[in-house]
């Protein structure tokens, strides 16, 4: 195995050439993206440097509580990002979403780092946090897609849902289509990723390991575990969250609480 070729600071700065190309393109074609590119570049440097120092500190500290604390912060941030993406005011979905995310991501990360990779202790931050981060990042997008789809379809299909309720359907029967569509919409990207991996793209984690000098045959094993883990975690978080949130879309009399805009039929 070869050792890592280090990137010095000035070599890192050389990478800014790519940003310069993007800035020139934006300027020449009046894309109006110069400010965003600048802010994005500064944030990339700042956030990743900060993370690098933070991870170094966490790895040295090697504390279970600190590791779990960081994991919780990641999960809370993910649920706030979801809130920003899913604009829903009538149904409170944040608490069940966060609870499902936290439990499901924790179990998944624990299973992968403690059982499949077999790290000892199971919370070894060098393994637990990157794996947890990958689960949270991917499942967060899946969950946002699923929730957004559920609320949109429930509103669009309000007439159908109420028609079924009026003929004796319970809330689950009346909304079974919307439930299925929402969960599949959340799961499809991670299933598609399994189809394209290795053919269409080399995943970031595997590329990173190979660049860092790992044996490609070991790197693919890690990647396979990660891909399987992502399918499992998106499935569990989407299904459990959507089950809970769907219930919250109905009132005590199993009436649909979502209204279309502010207008109500009289």
């Amino acid at each position: 195995m070869s050792s890592v070729v280090e990137i010095s600071l000035w070599q890192l700065m050389l990478g800014l050439v790519f940003i310069l190309i993007a800035q020139v393109a934006s300027f020449v074609y009046h894309l109006g993206l110069n400010r965003d590119i600048t802010v994005g570049t500064i944030r990339t440097f700042a956030q990743l440097f900060l993370m690098g120092y933070a991870l170094t500190f966490i790895f040295q500290l090697n504390s279970v509580w600190f590791t779990l604390g960081i994991f919780a912060v990641m999960a809370v941030s993910a649920s706030f990002i979801i809130r920003g993406r899913v604009k829903e005011k009538q149904v409170p979905y944040m608490v069940p979403t966060f609870a499902t995310m936290f439990i499901s991501y924790f179990v998944t990360a624990l299973f992968v780092s403690g059982l499949i990779i077999g790290v000892s202790p199971w919370w070894e931050p060098r393994y637990f946090l990157p794996i947890g981060g990958m689960v949270i990042g991917n499942s967060m997008s899946a969950l946002a897609i699923a929730l957004e789809r559920l609320f949109r379809e429930m509103r669009q299909q309000k007439g159908q849902i109420e028609m079924k309720l009026c003929l004796g359907a319970n809330y689950k029967e009346a909304s079974s289509e919307m439930f299925k569509n929402a969960v599949s919409a959340g799961m499809i990207p991670s299933i598609n990723a399994m189809m394209g991996v290795g053919l269409v793209f080399i995943p970031g984690m595997m590329s990173g390991q190979i660049l860092a000098g790992a044996d490609p045959l070991q790197a693919i094993r890690y990647q396979i575990v990660i891909m399987l883990m992502l399918v499992g975690s998106t499935a569990t978080t989407s299904i459990v969250s959507i089950l809970i949130v769907r219930k919250r879309c109905f009132g005590k009399g199993e009436e649909l609480l979502l209204s279309i805009g502010d207008k109500v039929d009289q």
Binding site: L165, C166, L167, G168, A169, N170, G253, E254, E255
Partner: peptide
């Protein structure tokens, strides 16, 4: 609710 709505059907 489901039993009520089978007995009182709204069109």
């Amino acid at each position: 609710p489901a039993e009520l709505r089978r007995a009182i059907v709204y069109v």
